[in-house]
Simulated assay, not measured.
Amino acid sequence: MNIQFVLLVLGVNLQAVTAYRNGLVSGACSSMIPGHNGTNVSPLDPPYTVTSDVLNYTDGQVITVTLQGNDTGFKGFLLQARNGMGPVGTFTILGDNSQLLNCGTEGSAVSHNSSILKSTVVAQWNAPNSNNTDIRFRATFVQNFSVYWVGVESRLITYLASDSPNATVLPPNSTVLPPNSTVLPPNSTVLPPNSTVLPPNSTVLPPNSTVLPPNSTVLPPNSTILPPNSTVLPPNSTVLPPSSTVLPPNSTVLPPNSTVLPPNSTVLPPNSTVLPPSSTVSTTQTTVLSPATTKPNSSSSVSVAVCLLLLPLLTII
Rank of each mutant, 00 (worst) to 15 (best):
N113Q: 06
M85W: 06
N22W: 04
P213N: 04
N97S: 13
F74H: 03
P213L: 04
L247P: 12
T182M: 11
L24C: 11
S301I: 15
N132F: 01
A127G: 02
P185I: 07
S279N: 05
S52V: 04
S244R: 11
N187T: 05
V267F: 12
P185S: 13
L268S: 08
V12H: 06
K75T: 10
L7A: 13
C29E: 05
S188K: 10
G89S: 01
T64Y: 02
I3C: 06
A161S: 14
T210V: 09
P193N: 14
V204H: 01
S223K: 07
S244D: 11
V150F: 08
N236C: 05
T168V: 15
I3M: 10
P255S: 10
P192M: 08
A19T: 13
P256C: 05
P171A: 12
Q61P: 00
P234G: 06
T203N: 05
T224Y: 02
N126Q: 12
S300C: 05
P235E: 02
G69M: 04
T217M: 03
P192A: 15
G89L: 00
P296W: 15
T51R: 05
P277S: 14
A161G: 15
T133W: 04
N187G: 06
Q4E: 14
V169D: 00
G76A: 10
H112N: 15
G151I: 05
A127R: 00
G27K: 12
L79R: 10
G95C: 01
T140F: 05
P221Y: 04
Q15T: 13
S216I: 06
P199H: 07
V9Q: 08
T168W: 04
A292K: 15
P312K: 07
V62K: 08
S108Y: 02
P213W: 03
V9P: 00
L67Y: 07
L212H: 02
I317F: 13
L233Q: 02
L247D: 07
T217P: 02
T286D: 06
P186N: 14
P47K: 01
T210G: 03
S216F: 07
L160F: 00
I63W: 00
Q15C: 12
S272V: 09
F137L: 05
L100V: 07
Q143Y: 08
Y48F: 15
N129Y: 05
L275K: 09
S278C: 07
V288D: 08
L177G: 07
S282M: 13
T284G: 11
P242C: 08
T92H: 01
G95K: 01
P200E: 11
Q143H: 06
L160Y: 01
P234T: 06
D59N: 15
L101P: 03
S272L: 09
L94I: 14
K295I: 15
F5E: 11
V281K: 11
A139V: 11
N236T: 06
G86P: 04
